[in-house]
């Protein structure tokens, strides 16, 4: 319930009506949306039990490693009710044709693979918020100062998932494991996304806000 209460408000994409409908507009809209979501996700992280007692450098390292996984998991959860489309925001839904025009077909396909997997399992909101916290706590940054404190954070969110599954899905004792087994695909997809947006950044044709660039550079 703590994690449910910490969930950020929804964000609208608000594509600029003055821009011509092309790949640059689509990517500009997505980068702007991501930048605003990142601000919310940083606020969200501070509400995770134990996160704020980590050192500031460790908080930064977890977020620098996991920010794209958190963004993608939110898109995935929003897209569960839609067939073959990604709901980046309520006002910004992208099908495969639109993704192809934006040069994002490979990423679209990869994220939809996650959507299908969670849809098949009937991923619940409680599980989604807990998995998102696990992704952050388990971000495998190479430069953590106090690994014991990060381990405590991991244990705390892992235990929350185990408890939830024990109470609500006693019919499937392996459900928590099944959920955790989706995380490698999330990591792989986030890595692809970061690489793709790094190359878009180098291209220089798409305007990007500073926080988004800062985090792309932290991962590069």
């Amino acid at each position: 319930s703590h994690l449910l209460g910490a969930e950020p408000e929804k964000v609208f994409a608000m594509p600029d009506p003055a821009l011509p409908d092309d790949d640059i507009k689509a990517l500009t809209t997505l980068c702007d949306l991501a930048d605003r979501e990142l601000v919310l996700n940083i606020g969200w992280a501070k509400h995770l039990p134990g996160f704020s007692s980590l050192s500031l450098p460790d908080q930064m390292r977890l977020l620098q490693s996991a920010w794209m996984e958190v963004l993608i998991l939110r898109v995935v959860f929003r897209s569960l009710g839609t067939q073959d489309k990604l709901v980046f925001a309520e006002d910004y839904v992208m099908d495969a044709d639109q993704a192809k025009l934006a040069g994002l077909l490979e990423l679209h396909t990869a994220i939809l693979q996650l959507v299908r997997r969670y849809r098949a399992m009937g991923l619940e909101r409680e599980e989604f918020v807990t998995l998102k916290a696990i992704a952050l706590a388990n971000s495998d940054s190479m430069h953590i100062e106090d690994m014991e404190a990060v381990q405590r954070l991991q244990d705390c969110v892992h235990e929350a998932l185990q408890d939830y599954e024990h109470i609500h899905h006693s019919e499937d004792p392996r459900r928590a494991g099944k959920l955790i087994m989706t995380l490698p695909l999330l990591r792989q997809t986030a890595t692809k996304a970061v690489q793709h947006f790094c190359s878009i950044k180098q291209d220089g044709r798409v305007p990007m806000h500073k926080l988004f660039v800062e985090l792309l550079e932290a991962n590069a």
């Binding site: 601000v39 940083i42 606020g43 501070k46 500031l56 908080q59 930064m60 977020l63 620098q64 500073k210 926080l211 800062e214 985090l215 550079e217 932290a218």
Partner: peptide, 15 residues
Amino acid sequence: KEKHKILHRLLQNST
């Protein structure tokens, strides 16, 4: 560290 100043600032804000 200067490179990550926005993340740093957002984490330091008390909200």
